[in-house]
């Protein structure tokens, strides 16, 4: 079923943007990019939802 943009698509898109920014000389403030940070939060949140 076509559901449109998924989380993976979003992450992919933002990661590409971040890579481009870094090439143009933007210094990252952390090893993990902003999108990686948000993705980490969402992943942990999903783990909290799991019903055993």
């Amino acid at each position: 079923m076509a559901i449109g943009i998924t989380e993976h698509d979003v992450r992919n898109k933002i990661a590409l943007q971040e890579a481009k920014d870094e090439e143009s000389g933007v210094v990252p403030i952390h090893d993990i990019s902003p999108s990686g940070f948000i993705a980490t939060i969402l992943e942990l949140e999903e783990q909290q939802y799991v019903t055993p």
Binding site: I3, G4, I5, T6, E7, D9, V10, R11, I14, P34, S35, F37, I38, A39, I41, L42
Partner: peptide, 17 residues
């Protein structure tokens, strides 16, 4: 605001999936 926008974009995708 850029962090917030990234999360909002992710959240919209979460609704869909």
């Amino acid at each position: 605001s850029d962090l917030l926008n990234v999360e909002i974009e992710f959240r919209h995708a979460q609704l869909r999936t």
